[in-house]
Nucleic acid binder design. Structure first.
Lengths: 188, 188
DNA sequence: CAAACATTAGGTCAATCATCCTAGATGTCA
DNA sequence: TGACATCTAGGATGATTGACCTAATGTTTG
C-alpha cells in the first residue's frame, strides 16, 4: 500500500521539477516506476491530488532541511550562509531545471491553478526561517525586508543560472551576498 | 496576407506570456482572433515556427524599448534607473504573469526546447545594454558583473512579485537598487 | 473577363491526455 | 482453508492536441 503510493509521489516530485507539472503525464510517471496507468486511481483521485501530495512532501523536506541547518550551525550568521550556499551545493540541478520552489510557483501561477497558494507556502517556510535568523542577529525591525531581499536575490541568481549555465556567475553572486551579509552586521 | 499572420503572432505573443508556451493551443489562439484552426498552416509550418516568430517580435520590441530609453534619458545613470523602474511600470502584468523574458526562458529550459538559446538572446540584449551603460559610467572592468547582478536582482523581484502580489515589496526593492546604484558611483 | 495566385474555412487524422472500469492477483486474518 | 479487503494490470472512454488536406473564396494581373 505505502510502497507504490510512495514511489508515485517520489517520481512525480522529480518529474514535476524536471519537466514541469502540466507537461508531466501519468504515462511518463508510470513508465518511470514501471506500473500501469490505471493503478494511479486507487491511490489518487486526480492529478491535482498527486500535486497536493508532492507539495506536502516538499513542505516536510524543507522543514527538515531548515531544522538540520540550525542544528549543524553555530549561530544565525552561519545559518544564513547555509541558505546562500544552496545555490552552490545544488548548482547542477539548478543549472538544469532552475529552483524547484520558484519554477513551480511560477508555473502554477500561469496555469491559474488552485494549488498556487499552497506552493507559495514553501517560499513562506524559507521566509519565516530567514526572518527568524535575522532577528537573532538583532535586526528585529528589518527582518522581514531582509528575508524577502535575500530570497529574491537567490531566486534571481537561480533564474539566470538556469538560463546561462554559468557557474562563475553563481559563485560571484554568492560572494556578493556574503559581503552584503557582513555589511549589515557591521553597522552597529 | 500580412494581417492574419500578424494577428496570429500578436495573439500568440500575449498567450505564451499569460499561459505559457506549452499550455497554449492553436484552438486558444484561433478563438482569440476568430479564425479557424486549419488557417495556421498556410502561415506557419508548426507551433515551433510560431514561437520563432514571437521571439523575433520580442527581440525587436526590446531593441526599440532600449533605444527609446537611451533617447529619453539624459545620461547612463538615468538609463539604468529606467531599467529598474520597469518593475514598477509593468507591475500589473508582472504580478499576474511574471517577467515575460524570464518565465519563457525557464519554461523552454524545462521542455528542452530548441528555441531556449534564442529566448536567452532577449536576456542578452538587456545584458549588453546594461553593460554599455555601466561602461559609460566608468565601470569598464566590472561592467559585465554589474549587468548580470542587476538583471538577476530584477528577475528575483519579478519572481516573488508574481508569487506574492506584493507591490510594497517591489517598491522597496526598487529603492534598494537605486541606493546600490548610487553607492557604486560614489566610490571614486 | 480569365487565368494565376494568395488566403481561408472546416473536416480529418493519429497521437496523447486524464479518467474510469473491471477482472484478476495478492495479501490478511478467522 | 476460506472469506474478504487491498492492490494492480490493462483495456475503454471521450476530449484535446498538433498536424495535414481539400475545397472554396479573395485578390491580383494579363
Amino acid at each position: 500500500m505505502q510502497a507504490t503510493k510512495r514511489s508515485i509521489i517520489d517520481a512525480a516530485n522529480i518529474l514535476f521539477y524536471q519537466q514541469g507539472y502540466d507537461h508531466t503525464s501519468f504515462s511518463r510517471i508510470a513508465d518511470e516506476i514501471h506500473i500501469s496507468r490505471g493503478n494511479f486511481y486507487h491511490h489518487f483521485k486526480s492529478k491535482d491530488e498527486i500535486l497536493e501530495a508532492v507539495l506536502q512532501v516538499r513542505m516536510s523536506h524543507t522543514c527538515e532541511m531548515l531544522n538540520g541547518w540550525e542544528k549543524e550551525s553555530d549561530n544565525a550568521l552561519d545559518c544564513i550562509r547555509r541558505f546562500i550556499q544552496i545555490l552552490d551545493v545544488n548548482f547542477d540541478k539548478i543549472q538544469s531545471y532552475g529552483c524547484p520552489v520558484g519554477t513551480l510557483c511560477t508555473e502554477l501561477g500561469k496555469l491559474n491553478h488552485n494549488a498556487q497558494e499552497e506552493a507559495n507556502q514553501v517560499f513562506v517556510l524559507f521566509l519565516d526561517w530567514l526572518k527568524k535568523q535575522f532577528i537573532l542577529l538583532g535586526h528585529e525591525k528589518e527582518a522581514e525586508h531582509l528575508a524577502m531581499h535575500l530570497l529574491a536575490r537567490s531566486q534571481g541568481v537561480a533564474t539566470l543560472a538556469h538560463a546561462f549555465q554559468d557557474r562563475d556567475f553563481v559563485m560571484y553572486e554568492i560572494q556578493e551576498m556574503f559581503d552584503w551579509l557582513d555589511n549589515i552586521n557591521e553597522e552597529e
